[in-house]
């Protein structure tokens, strides 16, 4: 917290879709090791903020800085390479592939294999692929799902799928992780486990986590900070306790106190 420079900084970011303002001059920051939740009703612009950060949506004005450098309007694979990795609300996994293969895709940038060496079948290129496989197994072990390596992801229950997706996003050890509604479709016990994992990643690895979430208990349990959005604007940005106490925020934007 003593580090004055934030990991991610949005400065007056505005996104428009054919004249409609989806995100309206939004500014906020995420620091290393901090879990920051982004909440608000449907259509508030949360996912658009996410997509702007990950490069899937162009911003019209403002700036997004990661690690002190501007990343807005760069292609998604470049932003991913800089160390901003994300999960998706649904469909982000390759269902007909095994957990291991999904993580291997996540490791793509970490396997500097060259086409010609590969096709010629050099020892080095084989070693690189084997090393990637070994690394993928290790990563699965970190979240204790190593035993699922050979299982097709489509055959896994929701909670384990979510873990595979988080492992895949973490594969290149990104400093910042964007989680888009990770608790959707999870049973209450798996939600609790997910919360534990999120806290662990922030606390033990110092990863900055930006989290879109509708499950309000999860948000309150894991977040250091909660940002509330409505109609494209940021309407609150504070600790969970303060936001929770702000009955107006909850009633207006979440529909329950």
């Amino acid at each position: 917290m003593s580090d004055p420079s934030p990991l991610l900084a949005l400065d007056e970011v505005t996104v428009q879709f054919s004249g409609l303002t989806a995100v309206d001059h939004v500014s906020f920051q995420v620091r290393a090791g901090e879990v920051c939740a982004l909440i608000g009703p449907n259509g508030a612009g949360k996912t658009t903020v996410f997509n702007a950060v990950s490069g899937n949506v162009r911003i019209h004005s403002g700036a997004i800085q990661f690690d002190g450098k501007p990343i807005h309007n760069l292609p998604p694979h470049i932003i991913s390479g800089r160390g901003v990795r994300r999960t998706f609300q649904n469909g982000g996994l390759f269902a007909e592939r095994t957990a291991l293969e999904n993580v291997l895709v996540g490791l793509h940038a970490a396997v500097p294999n060259n086409l010609f060496a590969l096709v010629l079948g050099t020892r080095k290129s084989a070693a690189l692929e084997l090393e990637a496989t070994r690394r993928a197994h290790e990563l699965l072990d970190v979240l204790e799902i190593g035993h699922l390596a050979g299982t097709l992801v489509g055959a896994l229950p929701g909670g384990q799928q979510r873990m595979v997706e988080i492992v895949r996003a973490l594969a290149t050890e990104p400093p910042l992780l964007l989680l888009d509604e990770p608790s959707v479709g999870l049973t209450p016990p798996t939600r609790t486990q997910l919360g534990v994992v999120i806290r662990r990643l922030a606390a033990e690895r110092g990863i900055g986590i930006l989290l879109i979430e509708h499950a309000i208990e999860l948000v309150m349990n894991v977040s250091d900070r909660v940002i509330v959005m409505n109609e494209g604007r940021k309407v609150a940005d504070s600790t969970p306790d303060v936001v929770r106490a702000d009955r107006a925020v909850l009633e207006a934007y979440l529909g329950h106190a």
């Binding site: 990950s54 490069g55 899937n56 292609p75 998604p76 694979h77 991913s80 390479g81 990795r85 994300r86 998706f88 469909g91 982000g92 996994l93 390759f94 269902a95 007909e96 592939r97 293969e101 291997l104 895709v105 996540g106 490791l107 793509h108 940038a109 396997v111 294999n113 086409l115 590969l118 096709v119 079948g121 290129s125 692929e129 990637a132 895949r168 996003a169 290149t172």
Partner: peptide
């Protein structure tokens, strides 16, 4: 040669593009 290509990160990138281009790009695949 094609077997080697498809069995490597190149093949995985192809499959990722087939599966979900947005997710593939998010994994750092150009």
């Amino acid at each position: 040669a094609t077997d080697r290509l498809l069995r490597s990160r190149f093949g995985r990138a192809f499959e990722a593009i087939r599966g979900n281009e947005v997710a593939a790009a998010a994994m750092g695949i150009p």
